[in-house]
Amino acid sequence: MLHMVAKLHYESEMSQIDIARKLSVSTATVSRMLQKARSVGIVRIEVLDLVSPEEITADLIAALGLKTAAVIDTPQTGVLGALAQPLGSMLKAAGLGDGAVIGIGWGRAVREVVLAGLPALGRASIVPLTGGMQQAAAHFQINEFVRLAAEQIGGAPHFLHVPYLSSPELREAVLADPSVSETVALWNRLDCAIVGIGLTHAPQPSETSAATAGEKALVEAAGDVIRHYVSEDGRLLDWEGEARMIAASAAQLRTAPLSIGVAAGAEKAEAMIGAVRAGMVNALVTDTVSAQAILGRLAASRAGDHT
């Protein structure tokens, strides 16, 4: 009987009067049964300590030493697209207008925020941070991200029609081409980078065998930023393809005044921490679930250091 009364009241949301009528008992009896259900542990009432996104943002900035951050309430669907608005606000606050150089990375998060729309900023130069990948997947079409971002921002797009990974000989020849070298030179003048933060992944069948062999050695990496792999403690992990990439270097990302990591998913907490500690990201745009996962992981690490 206790279980039935508890279910009717707390799960079916019936009033005590309606329960009394249904069971042909007095409302006083129903009230006593509900109190007993709580006392014996059938019903447990928990008061959640709700934290606002603003509080979580402040905690995230302090815990990781970020320049800035934006954390949104986790929506039921479309979390990556929902990050476009706080990203846009961050770009506006940075004063990225005429003459600024904004680098664009690849990945699902970057694709979704670009599709959702970036704000008009002015005649900035929009540049891809890597060459292209020989894959049809939508989240690797970096030149298309640059085109769309430039259209939205009101800036000038710069494209790289070269592979992100090549032989050393081809890389040297490609970088000597004036149209390529002009775009690549902008990596030294980045005012802002917008990058995804990836998880380590299974080797892609369309990538070269040498690259695949190199990536097999990185299964212990926390994640990557445009294929610069990092451990959770922020160490850059060398791999066979690193020297053959046509991509902005980790050092170039570190010198950008604002390097924004756009990512979501509790499973990416370790990767986001590593990217920030490596210096390739100094700002984060994410959601509350991801931010709490990061803060929880950092708290657990600190607790472990004191045991």
Rank of each mutant, 00 (worst) to 15 (best):
S301N: 07
E207D: 12
A293V: 07
P168H: 11
K268I: 08
A116Y: 04
A300C: 02
D49P: 10
D177L: 14
V219A: 13
D191V: 07
T255V: 09
A116N: 02
A149T: 06
P257T: 07
K22R: 15
G132M: 14
G107Q: 02
A93M: 07
N188D: 15
Q135V: 15
P157W: 04
E267S: 13
P53C: 09
Q35P: 00
Q252V: 08
S206G: 11
A291Y: 04
A248K: 00
M90A: 07
K36A: 09
G131R: 01
I226R: 00
I194L: 08
W106P: 00
H158P: 00
A137Q: 14
A210T: 11
D191Q: 08
E270Q: 14
T255N: 04
I142E: 01
G198R: 00
S12M: 08
I45K: 13
K216I: 08
L236M: 05
A303V: 08
V285T: 08
S181W: 06
K67L: 10
D73I: 11
S52E: 10
I61Q: 06
G196W: 02
E13K: 15
I153N: 01
A248G: 05
I260T: 08
G274S: 08
A116S: 14
A156Y: 03
V51C: 03
R147C: 06
H306W: 01
A150E: 01
E151Q: 14
G234S: 08
E11W: 00
V262R: 05
S259L: 04
K7Q: 15
C192R: 01
E267N: 14
A275S: 10
V101H: 03
T307G: 14
F140A: 13
G97C: 11
R244P: 00
P53D: 05
H201C: 02
P75M: 10
L48G: 12
T130G: 08
P75N: 10
S26E: 10
T27D: 12
S259T: 12
V285S: 07
M90N: 01
R302F: 05
G223C: 03
G132K: 03
D177T: 12
P178S: 09
S166M: 09
A84V: 02
T74D: 03
A299G: 02
G223P: 02
M14L: 14
R44G: 14
V219Y: 03
A94Y: 05
A247W: 00
A20K: 04
I17W: 06
L284H: 04
S209K: 14
Q76D: 13
L64Y: 07
T286W: 04
V219I: 12
R32L: 10
A84P: 00
K216H: 11
L175M: 15
R235M: 09
V114N: 06
A222M: 05
G103S: 12
A138P: 13
G198E: 01
K268G: 10
A243R: 15
A109W: 01
A156I: 13
L295H: 06
T29L: 13
D233S: 15
T77Q: 12
A217S: 13
N143T: 11
V180E: 04
S31L: 11
P168I: 11
